[in-house]
Simulated scan of single mutants.
Amino acid sequence: MTTTRRRVILDTDIGSNVDDALALAVLLGSPEAELVGCTTVYGDTLVRARLAARLLRLAGRRAAVVPGERETLAGRPVWWAGHEDTLFPDLEAESVAAAVDAPGFLAGRVAAAPGQVDVVAIGPLTNIARAIQLDPAFPRRVRHLWIMGGRFDGGAPEHNFASDPEAARVVFASRTPTTVTGLEVTSTVRFGAAEAAAVEAGGELGRALAAQMRRWWRFKNTDATPPHDAIALLAMLAPEAFTFSAYGSIAVADDGAATFTPQREPGSGSVRLVTAVDVAAVTAQIIRRVLAAAPEHRHDRLHPHG
């Protein structure tokens, strides 16, 4: 791990698949990272923001949580599972920065500390595209953009890119320095009953995460699913557990299908892919960091961030 703390904004569609919540917990349990803020995207972003705020509170932490873009740039209908707030019937009690513009928050925090803020985008890329449109200097000012999205093995298009392919095209055309972890890589890691039991040991936060894991499995009629977003986050925090491509470019079709082209000449590419993960190491890292996020396990090793 590095000794320099990364300042991170998490952009998320938390609430549908459990992997966003796991990613947030991993970030909170990582002493080398400081959560600058959290922006939510896609659909009822107020509900998503309140859920993020609740998980922060269960972790004994504070950070700005900003509801973001509800609609997509592409005008696609929003897919909504319907269970996003069912485990927390009193979410309306959570305070979020509803009056703040999420793309403006992203652009402003990056502009205030050029080269010092990483953005981790684990939902459709609408907020990121809007931030780039708002501030054309965003691609030069952000330290690095880390994306969970796309699929590069020829399979069916991945949800985040397919939900807003126009936003994805804006982001990749901007030449922002970016690392993308695609579905074909994240799907090599599976979380099931053993991992849920391990996470559940993490106090109130762990129990909430385990309940969300099991709810997602019931919804998908399965007993295990990949922690996609947590894996993409770990590509930033634990790069030694990952293999990366050379830099190149990504094109996104109208249906969200993504293709990666390696750079044709040195310095011509702005995007790289994660091409492989150490499954055992990544699984262990996710569980260890989720447990470290729980107040019962921190022992004052971590500190709240405002």
Rank of each mutant, 00 (worst) to 15 (best):
R5W: 01
R7W: 04
N17K: 09
L24N: 01
A25P: 03
V41R: 09
V41M: 06
Y42C: 02
D44H: 11
A53M: 09
R54Q: 11
A59L: 08
V65N: 04
V65K: 02
R76N: 15
W80H: 14
E84L: 07
T86V: 15
L87R: 10
V96W: 06
V100G: 00
A102Y: 04
P103G: 05
G104D: 06
F105N: 07
R109A: 12
A112D: 14
G115W: 04
V119K: 08
I122H: 00
I132C: 02
Q133S: 12
L134H: 03
P136K: 13
H144E: 12
W146P: 00
G149T: 13
D153F: 10
A156T: 13
E158S: 04
N160V: 04
E166R: 15
A173F: 06
T178G: 03
G182M: 06
V185K: 03
F191Q: 01
F191A: 03
A194G: 01
A197V: 04
V199S: 03
R207D: 00
L209G: 02
Q212D: 05
R214T: 14
R215I: 06
A232I: 05
M236L: 15
M236C: 09
L237D: 01
L237M: 09
F244E: 05
A246N: 14
G248Q: 11
I250E: 03
D255L: 09
T259I: 13
P266N: 14
S270Y: 08
V271D: 00
V277E: 04
V279L: 08
R289L: 12
L291C: 09
A293Y: 08
G306R: 15
